Amino acid sequence: MTVDFPAGHGPVPTLAGMPDLDEKTITEAVLRAGSHGSDERLGTVLGALVRHLHDFVREVSLTEAEWAAAIGFLTRTGQLCTPDRQEFILLSDVLGVTMLVDAVAHRRSPTATENSVLGPFFREHRPSFEAGADISGGLPGTPLSVQLTVVDTDGAPVPGAAVDVWHADSAGHYDSDVVGLEGAAMRGLFHTSADGRTSFTTISPAPYPIPDDGPVGSLMRASGRSVMRPGHLHVRIEAPGFSTLTTMLFREDDPYLENDPVFGVKGSLVARYETHEQGEALRHSFVLDRA
């Protein structure tokens, strides 16, 4: 078949039945092309991605130069990824996608403690301790006494809950980044007693910057955003019959609370680190949802 063009242009042959694709019709063509797979969930996710991505291109009238720059950015992001560094996860963090996926995947009952991101510093291989142990590894800093309680949504204690904790030191470094440190520090696995309690001593965690020497750091600077995370204590709690809780406790006096680059701060997770003669104390109760 042929189509008519304005004067001065000759007819251009096209395949019979093949529509001419333009900015309005190409989206449906792509969706039709991907509609024959056997994985229904993949079709749903990929279809939504195509629709939103195409709408984005149309909304901002994306230029070829801008799209090439975006591809270059993603290429550099991938090239920086190693077994010890995941720049794409960092990109997901600063775009708020990590927290959004977490919020969708962990919808809690109103009285349960809110979830937050796991972060890159959790370790499956960590030492186990009895309640009251010192996990500071002898590192310098303000002494911190921590008392934690785990209960269910009815307020009943949860005995035998596995409580993982980990955090940065007074300079904002996790144990894997502390020069000269051998073994683990500022992390450990505890179990709650019959009354749902456990405790330990350590040093107060300081704020620290996310890695900013790669493409994500360049994006943060171009956006005028802070790379500093507020000081926090990571907590992960598992107990039979309950949904796993992964969360953090932030200092209420931290100057970076309102500008966390990975959007992990929630009002209910801001805690008071009380000052006393020996250092600081933190007391907090966690409420678990039943699975």
Rank of each mutant, 00 (worst) to 15 (best):
P83H: 04
W166M: 09
P140H: 09
L53G: 07
D254T: 07
V104C: 15
G137F: 14
A103G: 07
E130G: 12
P127Y: 02
L62W: 08
F122M: 06
D169T: 15
F250A: 13
V270Q: 01
L144M: 03
F122A: 03
L91G: 02
L62Y: 01
T149A: 06
I237Y: 01
M228C: 01
P13K: 09
R58C: 10
P157A: 08
F121Y: 10
A29T: 02
P240A: 00
T98D: 03
G188L: 14
H36T: 12
E23P: 09
L189E: 10
C81N: 13
E258H: 09
H191Y: 14
Y273S: 00
D55W: 08
M99I: 14
E238G: 13
Y174I: 10
R187T: 02
H232W: 07
L74Q: 03
A69L: 10
I210L: 10
A162C: 15
D164W: 12
V262S: 10
E66L: 01
T77F: 04
R251C: 15
F73T: 11
T14R: 13
G267A: 10
A156W: 02
P143N: 06
G183H: 11
T75I: 11
S243V: 07
L80P: 05
H36D: 15
M99K: 06
T25F: 11
E274G: 15
A161L: 03
L245V: 03
T63M: 10
R107V: 14
R123L: 12
P159H: 04
L219E: 12
G119A: 10
D39W: 01
L219Q: 14
S218C: 14
G119W: 12
S35A: 12
